[in-house]
């Protein structure tokens, strides 16, 4: 049984009479101890997909369809009680900006303790012991002293460690990390990424890592899903996708960023910009920016095509057909 199995997850935004599809038939699987990278530019639907998985879309104007199975149990349309039982226990989440998730006028220790006791009936002492253990596990210097501090007395990296500590108190099976290092400096990012790897190994914890940085993905993820305008355009083992990208968008992303190890003559930008949510093109959403666009591309959404290696899929009519791609260059 898979730890997490998402099938055709679709999230729509409903405003009055109108509706827009934020996440469109997303499918993915994730097993214990593995890391899946979800990449895409801002607005591609990464956070929305994550919130749908953890059941935190709320009762607003967003609605989810499709299937999200966690350890075999369906979560979509499951009673709120079931979802709450998993949230923070078996499935935990961390975000880009820890400051917005922390209470500025409450001591770190009290916040962790409160969070622990919201999930399990424990004495204050027991909860404090768990909090200390979690802070130790995330490599926080001097945990007892940290318990007494306020969020603003911590650095950005330390705050992210606190968030991770809170997330792993109950040794979750799945950690969803939404751009956990985007706001951090390089050397601090390296620390946090190393920590996430270590925790994943120690706790046999799966990580759904959301980022726009292909370098981070390459370093962390076993598998990858590339999102564009709410749809998966390419997925597979990270090495396969990054070595032999099958979708023009993935290739474009790889070519648009220079390398630190080699001199680059000139950058090859992708023309234009991602389509706005309310104005997504017919057919392949990438077609208006694609160098290889064919008449059929703008008519229907391309099906995923299986490429050379198992599990490697690209949603492009030219995928796998290198000659055609070369000819239309």
């Amino acid at each position: 049984m898979r730890l997490l199995e998402v099938n055709d997850l679709t999230v729509t935004l409903n405003v009055g009479e109108r509706s827009a599809t934020i996440v469109d038939k997303l499918s993915l699987t994730l097993d214990r101890g593995r890391c899946l990278g979800l990449v895409g530019e801002s607005g591609s639907g990464k956070s929305t997909a994550a919130m749908a998985v953890i059941g935190l879309l709320g009762h607003g104007n967003l609605s989810a369809r499709g299937s999200v199975r966690f350890q075999g149990a369906e979560l979509i349309d499951a009673p709120a009680r079931t979802q709450r039982g998993l949230q923070g226990r078996d499935i935990a989440m961390i975000f880009q900006d820890p400051m917005s998730a922390l209470n500025p006028v409450q001591r770190i220790g009290d916040q962790i303790v409160e969070c622990v006791r919201a999930h399990e009936t424990l004495s204050k002492k027991e909860a404090q012991a768990l909090a200390l253990e979690a802070l130790k596990r995330v490599g926080m210097p001097d945990p007892p002293a940290m318990m007494r501090r306020y969020p603003h007395q911590l650095s950005g990296g330390q705050r992210q460690r606190v968030m991770i500590a809170m997330a792993i108190v109950f040794k979750p099976k799945l950690l969803i990390a939404d751009e956990p290092t985007t706001a951090l400096d390089l050397t601090i990012q390296a620390q946090i990424l190393a920590l996430l790897k270590q925790l994943s190994r120690e706790l046999d914890m799966a990580v759904l890592l959301i980022t726009h940085d292909l370098g981070v993905i390459s370093d962390m993820a076993d598998d990858i899903v590339v999102l564009y305008a709410g749809r998966s355009v390419e997925s597979g083992r990270t090495a396969d996708v990054l070595d032999h990208p099958g979708h023009p968008y993935t290739r474009g992303l790889l070519a648009a960023h220079p390398s630190i190890d080699q001199a680059t003559e000139r950058l090859n930008p992708i023309a234009g910009m991602p389509p706005p949510l309310w104005d997504r093109p017919q057919g392949c959403a990438f077609a208006p920016r694609c160098d290889h666009v064919q008449p059929t591309c703008t008519q229907r959404v391309p099906d995923p095509v299986a490429l050379g290696t198992p599990g490697h899929l690209a949603a492009c009519i030219l995928a796998g057909n290198t000659e055609t791609v070369a000819a239309t260059r």
Partner: peptide, 13 residues
């Protein structure tokens, strides 16, 4: 050296 080494790299297989 530390900064350069911390740059996340897309590495080929």
């Amino acid at each position: 050296t530390a900064l350069l080494s911390a740059v996340p790299r897309v590495h080929a297989g």
